[in-house]
Amino acid sequence: MPEPDAVVIDKLVKRFGTFVAVDNVSLRVAKGEIFGFLGPNGAGKSTTIRILCGLLGPTSGQATVSGFDVATQPELVKRSIGYMSQKFSLYGDLTVEENLDFFSGIYGVPKERREERKSFALRMANLEERRGELTGQLPGGWKQRLALGCAILHEPPILFLDEPTSGVDPIARRSFWDLIYDLSAGGQTIFVTTHYMDEAEYCHRVALMYKGKVIALDTPRAFKQRLGAKSMEEVFINEIERQEAATA
């Protein structure tokens, strides 16, 4: 029997008034996959992620995460995910360790596992030396790693990362992606949005999102082969131009 998919989205629609942020999106993400959501700002990537995290209700359509319906079982969905929003959202006046302890507490990590998970997160984020420092004073890349560390304390099977590397220098981005690979190798499913084209190359599969619609979905290699493009950037521009021509 094949393993059920980690994320299943079926004809998902989200409207804000007359604006259609997510327009009839359907896709599936397999377990352990690194799934990239690529698109310009305002394409509906964040909205989709927030619906999947139970932060927003869908207007119509269905989505399940880890087998739980996001609209009717948000509590169960929240237990099985880790979420990192595009805005830095840890407490700047708390130390690295205090932030970890806090999230460990609200994720309900069992007492006997706490220390172990905390050291794992500290090691992973390479913050062991700075565990006593105030989070607000850390450099951007370190903050992002800590945020990721906080989001994986409860070992969620699925991680949603919403532009996790925006505003971070290229070297820090590279090391962040190394972390993502490690997590994926450990069996976690990773659903990541980005508008950095080079990052799209790291994903197992990529969905191109434009004006609320998924206009293409494939592996980076297949994309490039099919379009004879050298980079994902070329693929992206190509696809959007095609889409524009089709709707014009």
């Binding site: 979420y83 805005k87 999230f103 609200i106 309900g108």
Partner: peptide
């Protein structure tokens, strides 16, 4: 204002 509420709402709390 700091976006931490969104983070909190994504947790089981």
């Amino acid at each position: 204002e700091n976006g931490t509420m969104e983070q909190l709402l994504s947790t089981p709390i």
